[in-house]
Amino acid sequence: MAKTLGETKDVLIGRAERQMREHFGDTELTTRQKLALTCRILFDGGHDSGLAGQLTARGQEPGSYYTERLGLGFDEITEENLLLVDEDLNVLEGTGMPNPANRFHSWIYRAREDVNCVIHTHSLHTAALAMLEVPLVVSHMDTTPLYDDCAFLKDWPGVPVGNEEGEIISAALGDKRAVLLAHHGQLVTGATVEEACNLAILIERAARLQLLAMSAGTVRPLPPALAREAHDWTSTDRRNQANFAYYARRALRRHPDCVTGEVRI
Rank of each mutant, 00 (worst) to 15 (best):
V188L: 01
R177I: 06
L180T: 00
D114C: 15
L153N: 03
C117S: 00
L226F: 14
N163Y: 11
E194D: 13
A178S: 05
D114S: 15
H184M: 14
H122W: 14
R228D: 04
P145V: 13
H140W: 14
L199P: 06
V134L: 02
V115M: 00
L199Q: 07
L209F: 12
A216S: 04
P135D: 06
T192P: 02
N198T: 15
H140I: 14
E133D: 07
P223V: 10
G158D: 06
L173S: 04
L211M: 04
A172Q: 08
F152K: 09
S139I: 03
T189H: 09
P160C: 06
L211P: 07
L132M: 13
A196C: 00
C117T: 09
W156G: 10
P145G: 11
C197A: 14
A151S: 09
A130H: 10
G185P: 13
A178F: 08
I201E: 02
A213V: 10
E165R: 03
A127P: 04
T192G: 01
T218E: 13
N163T: 10
K154M: 11
L173Q: 01
D148P: 12
G174P: 02
V179K: 01
A200Y: 06
L129H: 00
H120K: 15
A178L: 03
H183D: 09
W156D: 15
R205W: 01
Q210R: 08
A171P: 06
V161I: 14
L153H: 03
A191W: 09
A171V: 01
L212Q: 01
V161C: 08
L153V: 03
C197E: 11
G174Y: 05
V137M: 09
A200L: 00
I168H: 07
L146S: 03
T189L: 12
V137C: 05
V179G: 02
L199T: 04
R208Y: 10
V193S: 08
L132E: 06
G166Q: 04
L209S: 07
R228M: 14
P157F: 04
T126W: 05
L146K: 06
G174R: 02
R177N: 01
C117Q: 01
A127V: 12
C197H: 09
P157S: 05
V137F: 05
L173Y: 05
Y147F: 15
R220P: 01
V118C: 00
L226R: 15
I201D: 08
G158R: 07
P135A: 05
S170V: 09
D149T: 13
E165A: 09
L222I: 07
A227N: 05
G166W: 02
I201K: 12
R205L: 11
G190K: 02
V137G: 06
